[in-house]
Simulated assay, not measured.
Amino acid sequence: MRHLWSCILLIFLISCNSDGTNRNPFLQEVSFRFDLNLNLPLYSNLNTIGNPVYVGNNGVGTRGAFVMRTSFDTFFAFEASCPNHAPNNCSTMTLDGQNVVCSCEDYTYNLFTGEQLNRPDDGKRYYDLLFYRTTQSGNIITISN
């Protein structure tokens, strides 16, 4: 009986796989931590809901991050490199109101949801923006991965 349970457990462990289908193959998930002080003029837009800022400092994500206050006490941060191709000379997106646009293909993404707004209907897989963690402590917003 003990041998039977060992075989069942072994079969169960072998049959489990780490399904990487949700992982974006174009963007490396780099580890970083960066603090934004809301008292500084550079980040003053974050004191109002719906006013995003681009943080392009070295060591912040792959190509920087877009940060936006989405409610009174909630901030979202997303990778600034387009999630639907490998980083290249046109992949750093630009702000367009509360959206960001990739100049390579004109893909547009919403900063409230991270969702791609103009997803082609060609049967290929497309990725939404890569999300980064945000925490708030007083006037300091920390973005990290």
Rank of each mutant, 00 (worst) to 15 (best):
E79T: 15
P25E: 04
Y107C: 04
V30A: 12
P120D: 12
F12Q: 02
G64F: 01
G97V: 01
D106M: 12
C82V: 13
N118D: 11
G56I: 01
N110P: 02
G64A: 07
T113M: 07
D19W: 03
A65K: 06
N51R: 14
R33Y: 05
Y132H: 14
G123H: 04
F26S: 01
C90T: 02
C82H: 10
L38H: 08
W5Q: 03
T74C: 10
D122N: 01
T113N: 09
N51A: 09
A65I: 14
G97M: 06
R119F: 10
S103N: 05
V55K: 00
R2P: 05
F75D: 07
A86F: 14
G56A: 00
Y109A: 01
Y127W: 13
N37Q: 09
I8A: 11
N47P: 03
T134L: 09
E79F: 11
L13T: 12
N17P: 00
N45L: 02
I141E: 08
F12S: 09
C7D: 10
G59S: 02
F32C: 07
Q116S: 09
F34R: 07
Y107S: 12
H85W: 07
R33P: 01
D122M: 05
T113Q: 09
G50D: 05
S44V: 08
L4N: 10
N37G: 01
I49P: 05
V67C: 09
